[in-house]
C-alpha cells in the first residue's frame, strides 16, 4: 500500500489531506462559535457557482472558488456590519442566487453532467502542483494567524463587543476570520467535495468542543483530531479501495460518535 505514495499525485494528495486535516478544523471552531453554519452553506453554493463559471469559461476552478468565496464573505460581513439586516437572511439570499446562477450557466453552456458532479465530490488526487502549494501556503497562514493573534481571536470568539472595547481590532480580526473560513471551504470542496467537507472542517471541531476543557485545548484537539481522521481515512480508503473522502468521513463519523458516547457516559457517571 505504501508504494502508492511513490506516485507524485498520490503523495501530493496525501500531504494535502494531512495539512488540511491539521489546519482546516480551526475554521470549524470559528463556524461553530460564531454560528456561521448558514454562511458555510452559502460558501458551498458559492463554490458550485465558481465551478459552473470555471467549467463554462475554461478557468481554474480553485481560483474561481477562492475569488467567489472571498467576494461573498466580504459582502456578507460588510453588509451585516453596516445595516441591520440579519446575516442569516443575507446568506440565504446569496445562497439561492449562487445556485440559481450556477444552474443557469450549466444549462446555457451545456456543461457535461459528470463535470458538474465532480464539484460535489472533489478529489485529493486531482490536485495540480500549483493547487498543492497554494493549499500548503494557506495552511501556513492559518497556523500563523492562530498563533500570532491567539488572544485577540479568542476575545472575538468569546464576545465581539467586549473585545472591541478591550482595544482589540475586532473588525479586522472578524474580517480575517471570515476570509479564512471562506478560503477553507473553497479548499475543502476541492479536496473532498461539497458533500463531505464537514468531515474535514466541522467534525474535528465538534469532537474538540465535546472534549476540551479550555479554548486552547479546543483548538489543539480539533487540529489533532482532523489530522488523525485524515490519516486514518486515507489508509482506510486505500485498504478498502474506496474514495478517500468516503474514508475520511467514515473515520471522522465513527470517531465522533464514539467520543460523543464516551462523553455522555462520563457525564452520567459524574
Amino acid at each position: 500500500m505504501m508504494e502508492l505514495l511513490l506516485f507524485p499525485p498520490v503523495l501530493r494528495g496525501f500531504i494535502s489531506l494531512l495539512a488540511a486535516g491539521l489546519c482546516l478544523p480551526v475554521t470549524g471552531i470559528f463556524i461553530l462559535r460564531l454560528n456561521l453554519l448558514n454562511l458555510r452553506f452559502m460558501l458551498m453554493h458559492g463554490v458550485m457557482l465558481a465551478g459552473a463559471i470555471a467549467l463554462s469559461a475554461s478557468l481554474d476552478p480553485l481560483l474561481c472558488a477562492l475569488g467567489i468565496n472571498l467576494v461573498l464573505v466580504l459582502l456578507i460581513a460588510a453588509i451585516s456590519r453596516r445595516s441591520e439586516i440579519s446575516s442569516g437572511g443575507l446568506t440565504t439570499f446569496f445562497m439561492v442566487i449562487s445556485v440559481g446562477v450556477a444552474m443557469l450557466l450549466i444549462y446555457k453552456n451545456r456543461v457535461p453532467v459528470q463535470d458538474t458532479m465532480n464539484l460535489l465530490w472533489g478529489s485529493i488526487f486531482a490536485l495540480n502542483r500549483r493547487e498543492f502549494y497554494l493549499l500548503l501556503a494557506f495552511c501556513l497562514i492559518i497556523l500563523l494567524f492562530i498563533s500570532l493573534r491567539y488572544r485577540q481571536i479568542t476575545a472575538v470568539l468569546i464576545n465581539r463587543e467586549a473585545a472591541y472595547t478591550a482595544g482589540v481590532n475586532e473588525p479586522v480580526i472578524f474580517y480575517l476570520i471570515m476570509i479564512i473560513t471562506g478560503t477553507a471551504i473553497a479548499f475543502a470542496m476541492r479536496l473532498v467535495g461539497a458533500l463531505l467537507l464537514d468531515a474535514l472542517v466541522l467534525l474535528p471541531a465538534m469532537t474538540a468542543v465535546s472534549f476540551s476543557r479550555s479554548l486552547k485545548s479546543m483548538f489543539l484537539t480539533a487540529m489533532v483530531s482532523g489530522f488523525l481522521y485524515s490519516l486514518g481515512g486515507f489508509f482506510l480508503a486505500l485498504w478498502l479501495d474506496m474514495p478517500v473522502s468516503s474514508g475520511v468521513i467514515l473515520v471522522a463519523g465513527t470517531a465522533f460518535g464514539i467520543t460523543y458516547l464516551v462523553r455522555m457516559l462520563y457525564e452520567k457517571q459524574s
Binding site: R151, A162, A163, A166, G167, V168, V209, S214, L215, M218
Partner: peptide
C-alpha cells in the same frame, strides 16, 4: 462552549 471563567476574564487583556 468550553470557555473557562479565567479565559473569560482574561479577554479584558487581549490587546
Amino acid at each position: 462552549f468550553p470557555v473557562r471563567v479565567y479565559e473569560m476574564a482574561a479577554t479584558g487583556l487581549a490587546a
